[in-house]
Each structure stands twice: as C-alpha cells, then as structure tokens.
C-alpha cells in the first residue's frame, strides 16, 4: 500500500505539473487514527498530502461531476470508483476525456471503529478498476463470485424468508429510523438528476414531514430511480448516519433483474445498456 501511495503521489504531481489535469482527487489523513477524508489538490507541491491505506473508505466517483467544470480531473479509481465513472459516462453525465483515471487495485477497506473489513467491501466483486488510464500496482485476485454472492444476497434471502408481518415490521423499523438527511442520495454516483424529485417542492411529490409514510416513500422511490443502474459501491449504506441497511433494497432489484432479464452487473463498461430501458424479443414474459 505504501508503494501505491508513493505512486499516486508521484503521478499526481507529474499530471498537475504538466498541466494534463487541473486537479487530482484522492484521500488524505483525517484528524483521528485510521481515518481518511477526500482530498482535492490543484498544485503539484501538495501531492505529499495524498494518503492511501486500508481506511480509504470514501468512494470518490461522485465528486468528479462537480469538479470537472474547472477542467480535466485526475481521480483515483478502484473497482467501485471505476464502475461509478463508467455509469456516469453511460448516463451522459461525464465524458471519458474529462477524467484521467489513476487505477488502483484494492484488497478491501476496513471499518475504523471495529478494525474489521468494511461492510461494503465484503460484497465487492471487482477489486481491480474496470477502466483506467494507468494502473498503479499489480492486479489482485477477485473472490470467487459464488462465494461473494452468498454474502451479497444473504440478507435478501433472510428478508424473503420472513412472513408478511415480519417483513412489514422489518421495513417499518428501517424507515422509521430514517432522518431524511439525504446522505444516501448525495453520495450516490448514479443519483445524478440536476433536480431531485424530492426538491420539486411545487410538484409536491415528497412531503416534508418526517414520518413513516414519507420516509417509506422517499426510500422506495430512491431505489426505483436508481433501478437498473446501481453499481453496488455501497456508499449509501456506508454514509447513512443511522446505519440503515439501504443496500438491501438495491440488491433486491439487482437480484430480480438478474433472474428475470440476466441483467448482469452495472458499470462494467460505459456503453448504455439499461435493462429496464431496452426491449428484447426473448425477454421473459411470464405474466402474458
């Protein structure tokens, strides 16, 4: 990891020096032990602030949208960032030439509170970036997908195994605890609407009260809107200050789309291929 950190620092400095990029997005140390925070540098002299260790929990993809306005952005990409970037390109939010991607193979990050593997990394299916301009470090081996899927869908299966009443109680507990800070929306690389339905106050889709109904409505619509585009970076659940299991809602979609339409994983390429936005003559039609 130290070697990767040095490579990022060196390449960031060179890219800024040569003017190839106007800015590099990476990580730096936070105040506390084992804490990092996103870093934005514009000068080669600041490259020494860049840190890469096993506590780089933030997925940086979403930042590119705001920062590209000032010119080409260099950004560190692991599997999760790379898939987010691909998805943003597919969604026409970003052009490939607007970013310079410093690829980083990643063995998974740790939770600073427990020192254990970070939840979102336990279900990671792409430890190596799926798109990059250069790779800083040797590729690592992905966990066998059958092994990952046991973890990935374990909670979905547990929820599916509940009775109707138990399931209602489970989701009421989840939605009752939501404070609607919208961290899940802001951090999500596929939540890229310029104006979110939540903020369309005159249309009034989303009421402003905090109660079970409004919270349920927000969370379900969030999942519907992400729909077939989730890249499974897990940032929604990580960012949630209430620790709500938000990825489980997304995973239910992912699993259903897989089973019904063989949708596959999102963000592996920057080609637009929305499972729900295309029609194939051999699509499953059980209900017709």
């Amino acid at each position: 990891m130290t070697a990767i950190q040095e490579s990022i620092q060196k390449r960031a400095a060179e890219l800024l020096e040569s003017g190839e990029v106007t800015q590099v997005i990476a990580w730096t140390n936070g105040r506390f032990t084992n804490q990092t925070s996103p870093l934005f540098i514009q000068n080669a002299a600041d490259a020494g602030k860049i840190v890469f260790n096993e506590y780089c929990v933030n997925t940086l993809a979403k930042y590119v949208l705001n920062e590209k306005i000032a010119g080409k952005v260099g950004v560190c990409v692991r599997g999760c960032e790379a898939r987010g970037i691909n998805r943003m390109i597919a969604d026409n939010q970003l052009k490939r030439e607007e970013v310079y991607l410093l690829g980083i193979p990643c063995e998974g990050m740790k939770d600073r509170e427990t020192g254990e593997a970070l939840d979102k990394c336990l279900t990671c299916t792409h430890k190596n970036p799926v798109v990059y301009d250069e790779l800083l470090g040797a590729e690592v081996t992905d966990t066998v997908s059958e092994e990952i899927d046991k973890v990935r869908f374990a909670q979905i299966e547990a929820i599916e195994g509940m009775s109707r009443e138990e399931r209602l109680e489970y989701f009421n507990n989840v939605f009752n605890s939501c404070i609607r800070c919208y961290a899940c929306r802001e951090v999500c690389p596929v939540c890229t609407c310029r104006e979110c339905f939540v903020d369309q106050l005159r249309a009034g889709w989303q009421g402003k009260q905090n109660n079970l109904n409004e919270n349920r409505f927000y969370n379900l619509i969030r999942v519907f809107h992400i729909g077939d585009r989730c890249v499974e970076c897990g940032e929604c659940a990580r960012a949630c200050p209430m620790g709500l299991p938000l990825m489980e809602l997304n995973r239910k979609w992912i699993r259903d789309l897989d089973e019904l339409f063989a949708a596959g994983e999102e963000g592996l390429s920057d080609e637009l291929d929305n499972t729900l936005g295309r029609y194939k003559t051999d699509d499953i039609e059980e209900f017709m």
């Binding site: 934005f40 930042y63 404070i179 800070c181 961290a183 802001e186 200050p241």
Partner: peptide, 16 residues
C-alpha cells in the same frame, strides 16, 4: 472554496 469541495451537502451534520 477548498473546504466545501468534499462536502456532499447532505443534511447529516445539521440533523445530528
């Protein structure tokens, strides 16, 4: 300007 780059403008800080 520099500080706000990393902010997501979610409401977590204000609600807690």
């Amino acid at each position: 300007e520099q500080l706000s780059k990393k902010c997501l403008t979610c409401g977590t800080c204000t609600y807690v």
